[in-house]
Design a protein around this nucleic acid. Sequence first.
DNA 1: CAGCAGGCGGCAC
DNA 2: AGTGCCGCCTGCT
Length: 104
Amino acid sequence: MGNKDSNREAIYLALMNIPPGKVVTYGQLAALAGLPGAARLAGTLLCGLPEHTHLPWHRVINAQGKISLPESSPAYAEQKRRLQAEGVEFKNQKISLRIYGYNT
DNA sequence: CAGCAGGCGGCAC
DNA sequence: AGTGCCGCCTGCT
């Protein structure tokens, strides 16, 4: 345990455990994967996910409760749409972690 | 509210 | 095989 490959896998596994209608921050996801402080890693990996992935990458947002992508990005629109489809409400592009945050 | 520095991997040279 | 730069980040000034 601890090698790079398992870290990547850990992130994916942690992501799979996020239930619909809930969201986690990058840092939280990394922490759940056993990699505290590796928030950026989570972002990098999600960025590299193939389009055909089954992983709920859309449930990952930044610590500010916002989608960490340019609003003009196609991925932004899709992420927002998927979250709204799961019942997540946006307040001016912002999500309430207090309400939709995933707590173990 | 904006700006800067810090810690962790990934990828290119 | 080693070094360096960059990122869908964060927390603190």
